[in-house]
Amino acid sequence: MTTTAPVTTPKEKTGAETALADSWRVVVLNDPVNLMSYVVLVFRKVFGFDEATARRHMLEVHERGRSVVWRGVREQAEAYAYTLHEWHLTAILERNETD
């Protein structure tokens, strides 16, 4: 009696797994320089947020020290972070590991 080892084939990544692997977050960090009204203005101009959404993210930055303002592919995340830096906001990228 002979036994053969099971044959395993590499698993192909599904679209959802690929999207997850390419998912990034743009996180705005609190700073002691910018006025709250200015941060709301920047969020509205850069992301097209309405007043309530921009204010909610601004308050999250102010009270918690950070807010995730955008999720998506890395290239677009880098572009948003760059734009926020040009507006003198502190922004970082993080892998989106929670989706």
Results as ranks from 00 to 15, higher is better:
32 P>C: 09
51 E>Y: 10
13 K>S: 10
13 K>E: 09
15 G>S: 11
64 R>H: 06
31 D>W: 06
1 M>C: 14
41 L>I: 13
82 Y>D: 15
22 D>N: 13
62 H>K: 08
84 L>C: 08
43 F>M: 10
11 K>C: 08
19 A>K: 03
89 L>N: 03
92 I>Y: 03
38 Y>Q: 05
46 V>W: 00
11 K>D: 12
71 R>N: 07
53 T>Y: 01
67 S>H: 02
6 P>H: 11
96 N>H: 11
39 V>W: 00
56 R>E: 07
93 L>W: 00
78 E>S: 13
51 E>K: 12
47 F>E: 01
36 M>W: 05
16 A>H: 09
67 S>K: 01
81 A>T: 04
18 T>Y: 01
42 V>P: 00
90 T>N: 11
89 L>F: 05
63 E>N: 15
48 G>Q: 06
84 L>P: 00
36 M>H: 09
26 V>F: 00
33 V>P: 02
7 V>P: 02
13 K>C: 07
19 A>R: 08
7 V>D: 05
36 M>G: 13
50 D>V: 14
5 A>W: 06
56 R>Q: 11
54 A>I: 03
57 H>A: 09
39 V>A: 00
79 A>E: 14
76 Q>T: 15
84 L>G: 00
54 A>H: 01
30 N>R: 13
39 V>I: 14
73 V>P: 12
69 V>Y: 00
65 G>R: 02
80 Y>M: 11
87 W>I: 09
88 H>V: 15
79 A>Q: 14
9 T>K: 04
75 E>W: 03
73 V>E: 14
31 D>V: 15
46 V>M: 05
77 A>C: 07
37 S>R: 14
86 E>N: 15
97 E>D: 14
67 S>W: 01
56 R>P: 04
60 E>C: 08
23 S>C: 11
74 R>F: 02
30 N>L: 05
34 N>W: 02
31 D>S: 14
10 P>S: 08
96 N>A: 13
83 T>Q: 09
10 P>R: 10
30 N>D: 15
40 V>D: 01
17 E>L: 03
54 A>W: 01
62 H>V: 13
69 V>I: 13
75 E>G: 08
32 P>I: 12
48 G>I: 11
47 F>H: 03
